[in-house]
């Protein structure tokens, strides 16, 4: 599997994504600067966590307008896999690659802690390595992870099996405890929790490995 990680000026989980991908795939991903309009030929694009453009105006709003996002959209339209983590999820909703929006946490505070997630859907390139209903622990670290969409959209997401991860104990007020969703074509995943922080057992667990393994198996 060939992967690329998008780097916005204030991305700050780009290195973590790179380390996790390198560990799991055995080769370093391409790091693509936000001003580059060309994306290398890859199977997976990761939009990492961080604060892209300082998260001024709205998280992910300005990033969604950057040159590289036009290429990411084209990649997604061709069926290429896109994984948006944390700020990356915000960029994906702002770019309309995923429905809904991420609002300020209901508790109004940034929250960083390990959370238990339920794997709701294994019919995807991202989660086929998990068992349906499996509990996994990933850290969250965000101030605006409160997923919002209107009821019709939420019903549709649930009906189509596009809610991939749900919080066991909701940390941010997210609608229907949603932690991660798929696009209609199931090739774009946005999630607030950080799978790349649970690849290396020395720093908090290994529950994220199966996500990368699933991608490698599907996309290689």
């Amino acid at each position: 599997m060939k992967a690329a990680v998008i780097v916005f000026p204030a991305s700050n989980c780009d290195r973590d994504a790179k380390v996790a991908l390198t560990e799991m795939t055995g080769k370093a991903p391409a790091m693509v600067w936000h001003q580059d309009s060309d994306l290398p030929d890859v199977d997976l694009v990761v939009i990492p966590g961080g604060f892209s453009y300082g998260d001024y105006l709205r998280c992910g709003a300005m990033a969604s307008q950057s040159p590289v996002m036009r290429s990411v959209k084209a990649h997604a339209e061709k069926g290429g896999a896109v994984l948006g983590i944390c700020n990356g999820f915000q960029v994906l909703t702002e770019s309309h690659l995923l429905p809904g929006a991420l609002m300020r946490n209901a508790g109004l505070k940034f929250v960083c802690k390990p959370v238990t997630l339920k794997v709701e859907e294994t019919q995807s390139a991202f989660t086929r390595g998990y068992n349906n209903g499996q509990s996994v622990v990933f850290p969250v670290a965000h101030g605006e992870g409160n997923y919002y969409a209107d009821d019709a959209t939420l019903d549709r997401l649930e009906g189509e099996g596009r809610v991939v991860f749900r919080y066991a104990a909701n940390p941010n007020g997210s609608a229907r405890d949603i932690a991660g969703i798929l696009s209609e074509k199931r090739n774009v995943l946005g999630m607030m929790p950080h799978p790349e922080r649970v690849v290396d057992g020395a720093t908090g667990g290994t529950d994220g490995r199966a996500l990368f393994k699933s991608l490698i198996e599907t996309l290689s």
Partner: peptide, 25 residues
């Protein structure tokens, strides 16, 4: 307090707040 701080970014935090000392790889 410390749940408002991102203490795991950079993925080298081996001992998070709450212990005697923080440990960062």
């Amino acid at each position: 307090i410390w749940e408002q701080y991102d203490h795991s970014v950079m993925n080298d935090t081996q001992q998070a707040p709450g212990g005697d000392a923080a440990v960062v790889r």
